[in-house]
């Protein structure tokens, strides 16, 4: 019997979902599909967000900023496109010349792509508890995973500490006028952060988290592996011995991987939560699979993924079947909302 988890689908399923999302977003430049994906991914993040947790970065707000910035940047730097909105004097450094509607739209599409990627990562981060992320990490990298989880836990603490410092300095009349005025904000934040890090290190040591010293065998394998890698690089680039270099690099990589595996074996861990795959995973994987087929398989609708506003702005093609397939990425929403009805 395993403890109940708030995570409805297996961490590996979530990881596959993220991979599909990132691939889909990076394969399309059609603003209509990108908008659809942005809103869909925002919805996934919102339904997965645990009660009481603030949204670290609102994807829609981020999109407004990214799209505006993308449009401005592209308009000011790209001189290509047929529809001239305004022509700035050519003598103006960097921004001089015609500002085209096509450049504006291209910049907006860039902003949309970035926003959809951020929304995808945001939804994944919201859904996956840190403990589930750690469970995905191979045992050899466990200490590194713990360090990462501590870093993630420290983000909201550091943000709060930064707010406290800012307010405290305001209360003694501090105002930022020149760059040097940033020191009263930075130093207490830095020192406070170090003090907290020491406190955490002490608390972790008291709970038995002291690092296991690697055995001599592991150390030897690591040193040998690194030496072989170095020798392989020398053989490749200094003496041009391609075959010998490849063999040495292979041996070095093998030794390092073996050392990591041994070190993982020497530090046994157990897992509290055992995630099992079920009907919910099947649904999410089917949804992601549908999206993947739609964006990768050679069928006529796939052509609508591509879009460029150059040289003359045209309306992007909207293929309803493809849009429907993209909605496969929204399956986590269906799983969450329909959880009561699923076995």
């Amino acid at each position: 019997m395993t403890p109940r988890s708030l995570l409805l689908v297996h961490p590996v399923t979530w990881t596959i979902w993220l991979g599909t999302t990132l691939l889909t977003v990076s394969l399309t430049r059609n603003p209509l599909y990108l908008l659809l994906l942005l809103f869909g991914l925002t919805l996934v993040a919102e339904t997965e967000r645990p009660t009481g947790r603030a949204t670290p970065l609102d994807p829609i707000f981020f999109a407004v900023i990214a799209v505006s910035f993308g449009a401005l940047f592209n308009a000011a730097t790209i001189r290509y496109g047929d529809t001239v909105l305004v022509a700035l004097p050519a003598s103006w450094w960097l921004i001089g010349g015609p500002i085209t509607l096509e450049a504006v739209v291209f910049g907006m599409i860039n902003g949309l792509v970035l926003s959809a990627l951020v929304a995808g990562f945001g939804a994944f981060g919201t859904a996956m508890p840190i403990s589930a992320l750690i469970s995905l990490v191979p045992r050899a990298f466990y200490p590194l995973a713990v360090v990462m989880s501590v870093a993630v836990t420290y983000v909201p603490l550091t943000i709060r500490l930064a707010g406290q410092v800012r307010e405290a300095q305001q209360l003694r009349g501090h105002q930022v006028r020149v760059w040097r005025d940033g020191l009263p904000l930075l130093l207490p934040l830095l020192i406070g952060g170090l003090e907290r890090a020491l406190q955490l290190a002490e608390a972790m040591a008291a709970r038995g988290f002291a690092a296991d010293p690697p055995s001599n065998q592991v150390r030897m394998m690591l040193v040998g592996g690194l030496a072989a890698l170095f020798a392989g690089l020398l053989l490749q680039f200094a003496w041009g011995q391609v075959v010998a270099a490849s063999l040495t690099l292979l041996i070095g990589t093998g030794l390092i991987l073996w050392a990591l595996r041994e070190s993982g074996q020497q530090a046994p861990r157990t897992r509290y939560r055992v995630y099992r795959r079920g009907i919910r995973d099947m649904m999410v994987l089917l949804g992601a699979g549908l999206t993947l087929i739609a964006v990768l398989a050679p069928w006529p609708g796939r052509a609508s993924l591509a879009y460029t506003p150059y040289p003359t702005l045209q309306m992007p093609i909207f293929e309803p079947l493809l849009a429907l397939a993209l909605m496969g990425l929204l399956m986590p929403v269906a799983v969450r909302l329909g959880d009561h009805y699923l076995p």
Binding site: P3, L6, P129, I130, S131, V146, S149, V150, V152, T153, L157, R196, Q199, L200, A203, M204, R207, Y272, R273
Partner: peptide, 11 residues
């Protein structure tokens, strides 16, 4: 706060 590693009570 300075003692926690994860984000949920049970974990």
């Amino acid at each position: 706060e300075a003692q926690f590693v994860l984000e949920r009570v049970e974990d």
